Amino acid sequence: EPLWIRPDAPSRCTWQLGRPASESPHHHTAPAKSPKILPDILKKIGDTPMVRINKIGKKFGLKCELLAKCEFFNAGGSVKDRISLRMIEDAERDGTLKPGDTIIEPTSGNTGIGLALAAAVRGYRCIIVMPEKMSSEKVDVLRALGAEIVRTPTNARFDSPESHVGVAWRLKNEIPNSHILDQYRNASNPLAHYDTTADEILQQCDGKLDMLVASVGTGGTITGIARKLKEKCPGCRIIGVDPEGSILAEPEELNQTEQTTYEVEGIGYDFIPTVLDRTVVDKWFKSNDEEAFTFARMLIAQEGLLCGGSAGSTVAVAVKAAQELQEGQRCVVILPDSVRNYMTKFLSDRWMLQKGFLKEEDLTEKKPWWWHLRVQELGLSAPLTVLPTITCGHTIEILREKGFDQAPVVDEAGVILGMVTLGNMLSSLLAGKVQPSDQVGKVIYKQFKQIRLTDTLGRLSHILEMDHFALVVHEQIQYHSTGKSSQRQMVFGVVTAIDLLNFVAAQERDQK
């Protein structure tokens, strides 16, 4: 057995438009009618409502009807409940999964919650491996369901041993009777949507819809739904939504950006999952974080739909894509998950301010006199920076000697690579993860907040409520011999709460 199987392995699926269902090699399930009293909570997966979006479509000038398939009504709160249950049931049916076995899954959280929910009911041990950027709410729900959680670096490539995929496979090879159901490759993922989600949409719309818009992560949702719609409703256009920084969209030119990270969760990847059939997507749109969270908040405030950030991405694209539809036509959007997962993220004004998705003037509360002053007023001194090749031991000596707790790590040209902190280095040394002679590049981390000289002290204040420091950066445009230009970030300084307090105190003292 291989040590790991690539999540982007070539698909062996034989589905073709027009091929009889009787030739399918898979076990198919028909939607079942729910009894009045459910035998367990797993029976509350599927049969989610279709809700008309009344205000947002009109606000953006849509002539067509805009409908939302509300997947956050599933038992675990997301569309991923469907595939989690289906993968477990299919693994039980073919004898792969037996009582007492362990389920391991690399996930952005929602599939993990679905699997942990099913594992709690069915009696399996469950280990979820997820990147650090995923919300604390997801972690809390997983723990409450009895799952064990392993976190991995957000910026690790999918084929790196440190990625959530790599760590999951390492655990599988170490733990007896453990299984990775593997949402990236498992046919049960798109089949769950082909058999149930798509049929529900067709039934709820009486077979009449002209466009379907869905955000894409593993691709199982859009693949399964689109294949069924292509068979039953061939005139329906399928629109895929991919965040900026991901590479799922086609044509490839759409993916060209210097951005590699994004805040919206559960969609987009740096590889093409095996289950994603991009041939059934008629057109791709890219979405960005700001519009995703703005539209998610709009869905909550104006439509009462308590959905997550990827739902915002989907609707932001839908109001663009559906401009081509006329009166009497219908566009369906998939709202994948609930706001429950993001209470401390985009639902929080403070978080939105820190990330730059909300401006101070958007909030009406009274601010102190210094709130709208610029960061450049602080008069920061030149920063202490270190090269990635310097040793951890030497870096600790320098920081202690100069009285700093942290320093930016830059390359020879001064471009920011990340940050090192005294606390992080000492804990890594004590844990045996690094040696004093190791290069400081081994303990770089990139989960820090950046701020510009033109940003306000109010925004800085919000950042420092949650973080010990902020890195002050400025952009530099560099022209190359080819005539092309590129933008790079340079370090201007490091600012802490002490710097802000000293500035405010000094100004008030001078005024007296």
Rank of each mutant, 00 (worst) to 15 (best):
I238G: 06
I238E: 03
I238W: 05
I239L: 03
I239A: 07
D242S: 02
D242A: 02
P243F: 02
E244L: 04
E244K: 09
S246L: 01
I247P: 07
A249N: 04
E250P: 10
E250K: 09
P251T: 08
E252R: 15
E252I: 05
L254P: 03
L254T: 08
Q256G: 13
Q256H: 12
T257P: 05
E258P: 13
E258V: 11
Q259D: 10
T260M: 12
T261V: 05
T261P: 15
T261K: 12
Y262N: 00
E263S: 02
E263D: 13
E265D: 05
E265W: 00
E265L: 00
I267K: 02
G268A: 01
Y269H: 08
D270E: 08
D270T: 05
I272M: 10
I272H: 05
P273E: 03
T274Y: 00
V275G: 02
D277N: 08
T279W: 15
T279C: 15
V281D: 03
D282F: 15
K283S: 10
W284V: 01
K286G: 00
K286M: 00
S287R: 03
S287Y: 02
N288R: 15
N288S: 10
D289F: 00
E291Q: 14
E291R: 15
E291N: 08
A292T: 11
A292L: 02
F293V: 01
F293G: 02
T294G: 12
F295E: 12
F295I: 09
R297G: 02
L299C: 04
A301Q: 07
Q302H: 10
Q302C: 14
E303G: 03
G304N: 00
G304Y: 00
G304I: 00
L306T: 04
C307W: 06
G308E: 00
G309D: 01
S310T: 07
A311C: 08
G312H: 03
G312P: 01
T314A: 11
T314D: 06
T314I: 09
T314S: 14
A316H: 14
A316M: 05
A316K: 13
A318Q: 02
A318I: 01
K320I: 09
K320C: 09
K320D: 05
A321L: 12
Q323V: 10
L325H: 00
Q326I: 10
E327L: 09
Q329C: 15
R330M: 12
C331S: 03
C331M: 07
V333I: 13
V333W: 01
I334V: 12
I334Q: 00
L335W: 00
P336I: 01
P336F: 00
D337W: 02
S338I: 07
S338H: 08
V339G: 08
R340A: 02
R340I: 03
N341I: 01
N341P: 03
N341R: 01
Y342D: 04
T344I: 02
T344Q: 07
K345C: 02
K345H: 04
S348C: 04
S348A: 10
S348K: 13
D349Y: 05
W351A: 02
M352K: 06
Q354L: 14
Q354F: 08
Q354C: 04
Q354M: 09
Q354Y: 06
K355M: 12
G356T: 06
G356M: 05
F357A: 02
F357C: 02
L358T: 04
K359Q: 15
K359R: 14
K359A: 08
E360K: 14
E360L: 13
E360P: 04
E361Y: 11
E361R: 15
D362M: 10
L363N: 07
T364N: 05
T364Q: 11
T364R: 10
E365M: 12
K366Q: 12
K367I: 12
K367M: 14
P368Y: 13
P368F: 08
P368L: 13
W369P: 08
W370E: 01
H372Y: 13
R374S: 12
V375S: 09
E377R: 06
L378H: 06
L378G: 01
L378D: 02
S381A: 13
P383S: 15
P383A: 08
L384N: 14
L384H: 09
T385S: 10
L387R: 14
L387D: 11
T389F: 12
T389E: 11
T391N: 15
C392W: 11
C392V: 15
C392M: 11
C392K: 11
G393A: 15
G393Q: 11
H394M: 09
T395M: 07
I396T: 13
I396M: 13
E397N: 15
E397S: 06
I398A: 12
L399W: 06
L399Q: 03
R400P: 15
R400N: 11
R400T: 04
E401Y: 13
E401K: 14
K402V: 14
D405W: 13
D405I: 09
Q406S: 02
V409E: 08
V409R: 00
V410M: 15
V410F: 12
D411S: 13
D411M: 10
E412F: 10
E412M: 07
A413T: 15
A413W: 08
G414M: 02
G414Q: 11
M419C: 15
M419L: 15
V420K: 01
L422W: 09
G423L: 09
N424F: 11
N424V: 15
N424T: 04
M425N: 08
M425K: 13
L426T: 10
S428T: 14
L429I: 15
L429D: 12
L430I: 14
L430M: 10
A431D: 15
A431T: 13
G432C: 04
K433A: 13
V434A: 14
V434R: 10
Q435L: 14
Q435E: 14
Q435K: 15
P436R: 13
D438S: 14
Q439L: 09
V440S: 15
K442C: 15
V443R: 10
V443Y: 15
V443W: 09
I444G: 13
Y445D: 09
Y445Q: 06
K446H: 13
K446F: 13
F448Y: 15
F448T: 04
K449E: 15
Q450A: 07
R452W: 13
R452M: 13
L453Q: 12
L453Y: 06
T454S: 07
T454R: 06
T454W: 14
D455G: 06
T456C: 12
T456E: 11
L457S: 02
G458Q: 08
R459T: 12
R459W: 11
L460T: 05
L460P: 01
S461Y: 05
S461M: 15
S461I: 04
S461P: 14
H462Q: 14
L464Q: 13
L464P: 06
E465P: 07
E465Y: 09
E465R: 11
M466P: 12
M466W: 13
H468F: 12
H468P: 15
H468T: 11
F469N: 12
F469G: 14
A470F: 04
A470G: 08
V472N: 06
V472Q: 15
H474W: 04
I477K: 04
Q478I: 12
Q478N: 15
Y479K: 12
Y479P: 04
H480L: 10
H480P: 10
S481T: 15
S481A: 15
S481F: 15
S481N: 13
S481W: 04
T482D: 07
G483D: 15
G483F: 14
K484Y: 14
K484E: 14
S485G: 07
S485P: 15
R488A: 15
V491Y: 04
F492C: 13
G493I: 14
V494R: 06
V495I: 15
V495F: 15
V495R: 08
T496D: 03
D499A: 02
L501W: 03
N502H: 15
N502F: 12
F503Y: 06
F503S: 07
V504I: 06
V504T: 06
A505Y: 07
A505D: 14
A506M: 10
Q507I: 13
Q507E: 15
Q507G: 13
E508L: 13
R509W: 11
K512T: 12
K512P: 09
K512W: 04
